[in-house]
């Protein structure tokens, strides 16, 4: 894959900022929501959907942690897959844009709200593509907290063992060190992640998940080698934004009007 030029990288950075802007506005309406997930994963979604990685309606895209669907809504509005005016209904009663993805969620091949299940579904897609000779690429977005679920490792083992019976599968992990009870590191030890995935037979690449160039390069390497690829994107739930207090609960950031104003002005300044 061709190396991206400075112009492309700048476009992806601005796309990530606009994902964050949408997320702040969506969460502001209710006063709470999965803002930290959007802030940590903005560059990942910008690169997956803004750089032609996920070929919409050909590739399969699995969103394992359904809480991250806010990022999908935002990037879909930016790339024309979703009417931007629909974003205002995020998390509202009766809305199709539910705060945790469900079977009603548009655009996705599979979204899970119960964590640790997405990789298995993605493997099913990769087998089906292979059986049908369709050569689809299957993408599975995972989060680091759900590495605590044993099913993820059942899937990792299976995918490596059966890789010749599957079409290509790439996993991207938003490693934002956040789960409900606090930092993942305070709850249990899942590290060393890259070594774990390698020992399960995967090719593991670890990058700064807020660096669109590093993410692009890592994901572009998916075609090389016969082992499935996992990209571990190291991120922060504060999305490197100064406005968010350092003691904020990253899993469920509370957004008052003062913080909303500060975030909007900080993000808008990035677009100037």
């Amino acid at each position: 894959m061709a190396t991206q030029g400075a112009h492309d990288l700048d476009r992806l950075r601005r796309l990530a900022t606009r994902i964050r802007l949408h997320a702040v506005r969506m969460v502001a309406i209710q006063g709470f929501g999965y803002l930290g997930q959007a802030l940590s994963s903005a560059e990942i979604f910008a690169v997956l959907f803004g750089a032609g990685m996920v070929r919409f309606q050909h590739d399969r895209f699995v969103l394992s942690p359904g809480h991250y669907v806010i990022s999908l809504y935002a990037v879909a509005a930016e790339t024309g897959l979703l009417d931007a005016s629909a974003l205002a209904s995020y998390g509202k009663d009766g809305s199709q844009l539910e705060a945790i993805g469900t079977e009603r969620t548009p655009l996705l091949d599979l979204v899970c709200g119960s964590l640790g299940q997405g990789l298995s579904g993605a493997i099913g897609f990769a087998i089906a593509s292979h059986l049908a000779g369709e050569r689809r690429h299957t993408w599975a977005f995972l989060s680091d907290g759900e590495m605590e679920e044993g099913q993820v490792w059942e899937g990792a083992m299976f995918a490596s063992h059966h890789r010749e019976r599957m079409d290509p599968l790439t996993v991207v992990i938003d490693a934002n060190n956040s789960q409900v009870d606090g930092p993942v590191t305070s709850v249990t030890t899942i590290e060393p992640l890259a070594e774990k995935w390698r020992s399960f037979g995967w090719r593991a690449v670890e990058v700064d998940g807020h660096d669109v160039e590093a993410l692009s390069q890592a994901l572009a390497s998916r075609a090389s080698g016969d082992a499935p690829l996992v990209v571990i994107a190291r991120t922060e739930t504060r999305g490197r934004l100064r406005s968010i207090p350092s003691d904020a609960d990253g899993h469920f950031i509370k957004l008052d009007s003062q913080l909303e104003r500060a975030l909007l002005s900080e993000l808008q300044a990035q677009l100037v």
């Binding site: 298995s120 493997i123 099913g124 044993g150 899937g155």
Partner: peptide
Amino acid sequence: FNAGMAEANMIGIAGGLARAGH
């Protein structure tokens, strides 16, 4: 496909296959 002793993963794979038409 033999999924081994990993029923949770096996059920998830079945779901993916069924979504693709199997």
